[in-house]
Simulated assay, not measured.
Amino acid sequence: MSGENNSSVTEFILAGLSEQPELQLRLFLLFLGIYVVTVVGNLGMTTLIGLSSHLHTPMYYFLSSLSFIDFCHSTVITPKMLVNFVTEKNIISYPECMTQLYFFLVFAIAECHMLAAMAYDCYMAICSPLLYSVIISNKACFSLILEVYIIGLVCASVHTGCMFRVQFCKFDVINHYFCDLLPLLKLSCSSIYVNKLLILCVGAFNILVPSLTILCSYIFIIASILHIRSTEGRSKAFSTYSSHMLVVVIFFGSAAFMYFQPSSVSSMDQGKVSSVFYTIIVPC
Rank of each mutant, 00 (worst) to 15 (best):
134 V>S: 14
173 V>N: 08
231 T>E: 14
265 V>G: 12
71 F>H: 09
133 S>Y: 13
99 T>L: 03
105 L>V: 07
242 S>G: 07
83 V>W: 04
132 Y>F: 05
35 Y>I: 07
231 T>V: 12
269 D>M: 15
270 Q>F: 13
54 H>P: 05
211 S>G: 15
3 G>I: 01
58 P>D: 09
144 L>P: 00
125 A>H: 13
66 L>Y: 10
191 S>A: 11
135 I>N: 13
266 S>K: 13
193 Y>M: 14
228 I>D: 12
50 G>V: 09
76 V>E: 06
278 Y>I: 11
225 I>M: 12
83 V>C: 10
4 E>S: 05
11 E>I: 04
143 S>W: 11
253 G>N: 12
155 C>D: 04
240 T>P: 05
123 Y>S: 08
121 D>T: 01
174 I>Y: 03
1 M>Y: 01
246 L>R: 12
103 F>H: 01
46 T>C: 06
19 E>G: 13
41 G>I: 07
92 I>G: 09
250 I>Y: 11
249 V>D: 11
174 I>G: 04
140 A>G: 04
112 C>V: 07
245 M>H: 09
254 S>G: 12
222 I>K: 11
234 R>A: 15
116 A>N: 04
60 Y>H: 00
262 P>F: 12
115 L>Q: 00
77 I>R: 03
133 S>M: 10
79 P>R: 10
17 L>R: 05
201 C>M: 14
200 L>C: 09
178 F>D: 01
227 H>T: 14
47 T>V: 09
52 S>C: 06
197 L>G: 09
271 G>F: 08
5 N>Q: 07
164 F>L: 04
64 S>H: 03
186 K>I: 06
212 L>D: 10
205 F>S: 04
78 T>Q: 01
4 E>T: 03
5 N>M: 10
218 Y>V: 12
195 N>R: 00
158 V>D: 00
8 S>T: 00
85 F>N: 04
199 I>A: 09
32 L>A: 10
137 S>I: 01
27 L>G: 03
144 L>D: 08
265 V>R: 14
94 Y>V: 03
248 V>P: 08
22 E>R: 13
252 F>R: 00
278 Y>N: 05
118 M>A: 05
70 D>N: 14
235 S>D: 13
26 R>K: 13
240 T>Q: 13
70 D>C: 14
145 I>A: 02
104 F>A: 07
222 I>P: 00
247 V>G: 02
21 P>M: 08
38 T>E: 08
209 V>G: 13
125 A>G: 08
5 N>S: 05
267 S>W: 13
273 V>I: 14
72 C>T: 02
63 L>I: 13
50 G>H: 06
235 S>E: 14
69 I>T: 10
120 Y>M: 10
62 F>A: 09
70 D>V: 00
95 P>W: 01
151 I>K: 08
191 S>M: 05
73 H>V: 03
201 C>T: 05
199 I>P: 03
6 N>C: 06
26 R>P: 12
82 L>Q: 02
64 S>D: 07
95 P>H: 08
193 Y>Q: 14
236 K>D: 11
176 H>M: 08
281 I>Y: 06
261 Q>A: 14
119 A>W: 02
79 P>N: 08
245 M>I: 14
207 I>E: 13
142 F>I: 01
217 S>Y: 15
77 I>L: 03
26 R>H: 15
